[in-house]
């Protein structure tokens, strides 16, 4: 297993390495994917529709909300608008990674963008932080592994969901939180010690912003706004 964060470590970032780098995130994908499949069927969707949703939309939180709104009998326009807002944070993630792939063709860039998720972004941002040069094959290895696992997990959840006893018993629901936590720690670990105080302050500001914003809006909007405000504070207060 690769230990991220060691300075000067040179790993060839090819497709195979991308697949390997995806492995730590898979527990999160599988647990959330199965849950998304179960929820989809519970909301009255067929397994085929669940499969299509995971193949075409491919976004965990959006799929949960899709199912919830469907069950609520919400109008189509409301479902589409909510899906858009929930996934708007990907705009920031794509914008962060895009400058590192400009040397590749438009088609390849579209391929990277369309499969970008919170998790694969987190792993890729780790490489950026360590100043490792990402290749499109590495990114594809990472993205496609995550994509396939997600689809399989969603379909498994839709077909066999009822057989699986409480997933909470195994702490599976914490896999995603633990993953985001670890990705954050790895980000901070790779920061120049001179700047670490600046970043830790920023983490604190974001936490406070999230608490305040969550009083007024959905957590997805709060994530989006807190990130935009936080990054702006970061630039302004930078020395």
């Amino acid at each position: 297993m690769e230990v991220i964060g060691k300075a000067g470590e040179k790993v060839r970032l090819d497709f195979k390495q991308g697949v390997k780098d995806c492995i730590p995130t898979l527990l999160g994908y599988i647990s959330i994917g199965i849950a998304a499949g179960v929820v989809g069927v519970a909301a009255g969707m067929s397994a085929l529709e669940v499969a299509l949703l995971s193949i075409l939309v491919y976004a965990g939180s959006a799929q949960f909300i899709f199912a919830a709104l469907l069950l609520d009998g919400s109008p189509a326009a409301a479902i589409i608008l909510t899906t858009f807002i929930v996934n708007l944070r990907h705009f920031l993630m794509s914008a962060t990674l895009a400058p590192h792939f400009t040397r590749y063709s438009v088609g390849r860039n579209i391929g990277i963008g369309i499969l970008l998720t919170d998790e694969t972004f987190g792993v890729a941002a780790g490489k950026v932080q360590q100043k490792q040069r990402m290749s499109v094959s590495w990114m594809n290895g990472l993205n496609i592994t995550a994509y396939l696992c997600w689809i399989i997990a969603c379909i498994a959840g839709a077909l066999f969901g009822n057989w699986i006893a409480e997933p909470e018993m195994f702490g599976l629901d914490f896999a995603l939180t633990a993953m985001f936590l670890a990705l954050l720690v790895l980000q901070l670990d790779a920061i120049d010690p001179v700047n670490i105080k600046h970043y830790l302050k920023l983490v604190l500001y974001i936490a406070v912003l999230m608490l305040i914003l969550s009083c007024f809006m959905s957590s997805h909007m709060a994530v989006l706004l807190a990130t935009i405000i936080g990054a702006t504070i970061g630039v302004i207060t930078e020395k």
Binding site: F180, L181, L184, V203, I206, M210, H220
Partner: peptide
Amino acid sequence: KWLGYIPVCILTALVVSNFI
């Protein structure tokens, strides 16, 4: 520079959203 702050900011926000 602004984009450089996005990873830490968004990961922090996602972590916080998981416990509130």
